[in-house]
Design a protein around this nucleic acid. Structure first.
Ligand code: MN
Ligand code: MN
Ligand code: MN
Ligand code: MN
Lengths: 218, 218
DNA sequence: CTAAAAAGTTAGAATAGTCTAACAAAATTT
DNA sequence: AAATTTTGTTAGACTATTCTAACTTTTTAG
């Protein structure tokens, strides 16, 4: 498979996770590639049995397309983890590089990175790393936004990997694994006042809280 | 610059080091790409000011082409070093992977690897790593083949990175930095009997000795 | 239920990189 | 010095990936 084909599959995989139906337009926007180009690539990948495609119908990955996409995402996330843990990159700097390295042709290279990282289950953003079969564990975290006052939760993953959001989380000194207790929710704008790790109080806008994914603590 | 262009420049650089004149045919053979293709790519790179080219004349890198090539070789060798030192690859396994990773677009990525390796001056094969300006230190090592009986030398670099040669050196338990004392040279076939690190005796064929680069010990 | 808008498709063209076939120049042999 | 071989170049074609323009189908609005 070419780098280009891999990127198409990955994009379709991500879109399929977010929406139940994915259109050519969705894929086109997500890749910033014009629709006619996407249309022809979709046909090509359909010919390879990776996408199931019928004219005017939503796009779907086949079993084998899903597996292929999962394996690329696995490489991407392993690389991101490596960049953060061993090369000292910030979690806001790794995506672009991983986007390139994920296409390196060498099973062994990624196996070694996996081993060096001690077989991590999540990437630096808290997203699950697919297993060697390309299967991804389903995460069912809540948005902090949806939690109620007095609830206590653990920060498990981010809902956005936008640069500005990640940098903001850094500036707030929040890290994956932090304990977050909801002290108060403003009725007017849903702004949250929270206590982090029983130590420091922070104020989070609804937009920020919507992108903080948490697991409720019993 | 594209991956393809980078590979052309690198190949021309290496050929220029080995021979004083490099022809289109040389480049064609070295890249395993047919001459007409090479011809047109050479024109293209000439247009970009990286190769100085006149019809029917030998090929030469310009100042800026040499610099560009040096920087790619720098990345290649840093990566090889990283693969050996941090991912546990053998020196016979790293070239293919480095051949791909050298094209990653991220200055920072290579800077971090350089730092992680503590700014190495040579790669796992003993070849010099160009500096940040693409300048390569000239090595003037002797072939062990050219040394005389009784001379004592240090194994500094290999003259070939062929898989079978590297594996043979491994099997002989020879490593860069080893002290090699020439005990005897067979007149008939130039086979050498050597003492390694004052400890073990080995017999090396002339062909092997020709690819072991050493520095004479005073 | 039409008319307009949105989404999808087809056709045709461009660029990068590659090839084969044919021709031309340079180098090497007689 | 000619003949032959080797090397280099040109021309034309092919694949992969992309685009724009034009057309069609589906969806949405009135
Ligand atoms: Mn990423
Ligand atoms: Mn990618
Ligand atoms: Mn190498
Ligand atoms: Mn390369």
């Amino acid at each position: 498979m070419t780098l280009t084909e891999e990127n198409y599959l990955k994009a379709l995989f991500h879109l399929s996770t977010e929406n139940e139906e994915v259109s050519v337009l969705d894929l086109s926007k997500s890749l910033t590639i014009k629709m006619p180009t996407v249309n022809s690539m979709v046909k090509k990948l359909s010919g390879k049995g990776l996408i199931s495609y019928e004219k005017y119908k939503p796009l779907m990955l086949t079993q084998s397309g899903r597996r292929a996409a999962g394996l690329i995402i696995r490489k991407h996330r392993l690389v991101e983890m490596f960049l953060v843990q061993h090369l000292g990159f910030g979690w806001d700097e790794v995506h672009e590089i991983a986007e390139q390295i994920e296409h390196i042709k060498s099973q062994r290279f990624f196996d070694r990175i996996d081993q060096l990282l001690d077989f991590p289950k999540v990437d630096p953003h808290g997203s699950p790393i697919p297993d060697i079969n390309g299967d991804i564990a389903v995460q069912n975290y809540m948005k902090l936004e949806e939690c109620a006052e007095k609830q206590i939760a653990m920060f498990m993953s981010v809902g956005s990997s936008q640069d500005s959001f990640l940098k903001l989380i850094d500036k707030l000194n929040l890290k994956l694994g932090d304990k977050v207790e909801i002290l108060e929710i403003q009725d007017f704008d849903k702004t949250m006042r929270v206590l982090v790790n029983d130590a420091s109080e922070k104020t989070l806008s609804q937009m920020v809280a919507a992108n903080i994914l948490v697991q409720l603590t019993v």
